[in-house]
Design a protein around this nucleic acid. Structure first.
Length: 460
RNA sequence: GGCCUGAUGGCGGAGUGGUGACGCAGCGGACUGCAAAUCCGCGCACCCGAGUUCGAUUCUCGGUCAGGCCUCCA
């Protein structure tokens, strides 16, 4: 079985072949840390986390290098720092820590590297220098601009021609640009903003060059996979590509371009500028991170995803079913540590997580209904398959009891014990009365021949 | 204006040129003291029009609707 990935450049699925199977490289554009991340920001994080896990499974955990950058130089950061009267580092440290904590709750592994723009400044300046030397960039009025004429394939990734861009230009073109599509590599800092020294004058880098420099420094060109949201295709990735190619004269910049579809609220994209955001920070107070992760992976990563409360509820119910099977199979030994074949086949087909999830249910059914040997194998496969997607690794009891503190748990256990005794004595009236008490505590009991299990129902 | 996606049952969501996954919700049955959970079963879903075809939800063209990018944006 081979991994097949949809490559935006080819506009088709292609079998994945890394440049070096000993060191598979992936880069994904990460956050600008000036605020909490919203659930739309989390989609690529979770999607590429799945790809990261799949690659580690295929090539070995030590043979995959995954870098996700942190943009910590930015207008919005400057604004926030000015508002609070603190240095930008105070802002970026705070929100990077929150970001990493939130993404961890969603089950995302930490990338191998999280390069920060402020710590990559030398490489950025050096790269701009090489672009100027190669004649692919020019200085104008304190700015350094990339000359889009210098890269013959400019527009190939996004499927636009330079003519189209000029024809469709809606934005006023800065007077110092030779051509409308040219973009900033270095610009002067405004008064009070952070400044870095460079041969082109004091200033700060443009956004696109940060990523190119970090990729070059952390991973080396060409990289195997470059990922991000599909809104980054143009201009961000197009520009990164042009810079990388012109600065380093390499054969290729990234061999596979992957882009995830957008997450919508009320059929509009969720974005900070539209103000229709739901922060991960808030969502994880109301639902388990694993359920949010499931909701994010319930549709294929390239499809648009409508985010609704009902979607989260359905995700939670789906996990209830799976964890329920695991809980009932508590005494079944798990045999083997390999995901099922059908599951892998789905996942390797351009990360078809909906189909992979369906296979999880097939395994759960075999776990519920199979003969003992089949149950053991199904349990092993279910656990291993789940692990590859970042699911089902919690203790089933913990999943169902989630949200109950020690005191509540003790109280529930005591009621359950009394109820089990009442049932053993066929004292149905007492048993029902105790069940009513439990219901009042938002607890649902599930009797079985020898006792009972319980779950905390979703609070309204 | 230019470029580009998508449209599947009550809901979410795969997939396929011909027996229409899977999940959630619902209904019937088994099981249960009653429930819950589980198991078994059920429900005439593929935006509209034309074309290609023995046959189209799946391919082609046109249309409608929804959305994205072209500006910071996952």
């Amino acid at each position: 079985m081979t991994l097949v990935l949809h490559d935006t450049m080819a506009r088709a699925k292609r079998p994945f072949v890394p440049v070096n199977a000993e060191r598979v490289t992936m880069y994904v554009c990460g956050p600008t840390v000036y605020n909490y991340a919203h659930i739309g920001n989390a989609r690529p994080v979770v999607v590429f986390d799945v790809l990261f896990r799949v690659l580690r499974h295929l090539y070995g955990a030590d043979h995959v290098v995954y870098a996700a950058n942190v943009t910590d130089v930015d207008d919005k950061i400057n604004l926030k720092a000015a508002q609070e009267g603190v240095p930008i580092g105070a802002i970026t440290d705070r929100y990077l820590a929150a970001y990493n904590a939130d993404m961890a709750v969603l089950g995302a592994l930490r990338p191998t590297a999280q390069p920060r723009a402020t710590q990559t400044m030398d490489a950025i300046v050096a790269m701009i220098g090489r672009l100027v030397a190669a004649g692919a960039a020019y200085a104008a009025e304190g700015h350094v601009l990339f000359d889009t004429q210098a890269y013959g394939d400019y527009g190939k990734l996004s499927g636009r021609s330079l003519d189209d861009m000029i024809a469709g230009a809606r934005v006023e073109v800065a007077p110092y640009k030779r051509r409308p599509a040219d973009f900033v590599l270095w610009k002067p800092s405004k008064l009070g903003e952070p400044v870095w020294e460079s041969p082109f004058g004091p200033g700060r880098p443009g956004w696109h060059i940060e990523c190119s420099a970090m990729i070059e420094q952390v991973l080396g060109l060409p990289i195997d996979i470059h990922g991000g949201g599909n809104d980054l295709i143009f201009p961000h990735h197009e520009n990164e590509l042009a810079q990388g190619m012109c600065a380093d004269h390499v054969e290729a910049y990234a061999n596979y371009w992957l882009h995830n579809g957008f997450l919508n609220m009320d059929s509009e994209k969720m974005s900070k500028s539209l103000g229709n955001v739901q922060l991960v920070h808030d969502l994880i107070q109301r639902a388990p991170g694993e359920a949010l992760r499931w909701a994010l992976l319930a549709s294929h990563y390239r499809q648009p995803l409508a985010w609704t409360d009902d979607g989260v509820t359905q995700a939670r119910s789906a996990l209830d079913t799976l964890y329920g099977a695991l809980r009932r199979a508590r005494d079944v030994p798990a045999e083997g540590d390999a995901p099922s074949e059908a599951f892998m086949e789905a996942l390797l087909d351009d990360l078809n997580t909906p189909r992979a999830n369906a296979e999880l249910f097939a395994l759960a059914r075999r776990l519920e209904t199979g003969a003992p040997t089949e149950r053991a194998r199904a349990k092993g496969e279910l656990l291993a398959s789940g692990a590859l997607l970042g699911f089902l690794q919690a203790d089933p009891e913990a999943w169902f009891h989630g949200g109950a503190d020690a005191a509540l748990t003790a109280r529930i256990d005591a009621l359950i014990a009394r109820r089990v005794a009442a049932r053993a004595a066929k004292d149905w009236a007492s048993a029902d009365a105790i069940r009513a008490e439990l219901t009042a505590l938002n607890v649902e009991v599930m009797d079985n021949p020898t006792g009972a299990t319980w779950r905390l129902k979703e609070s309204a």
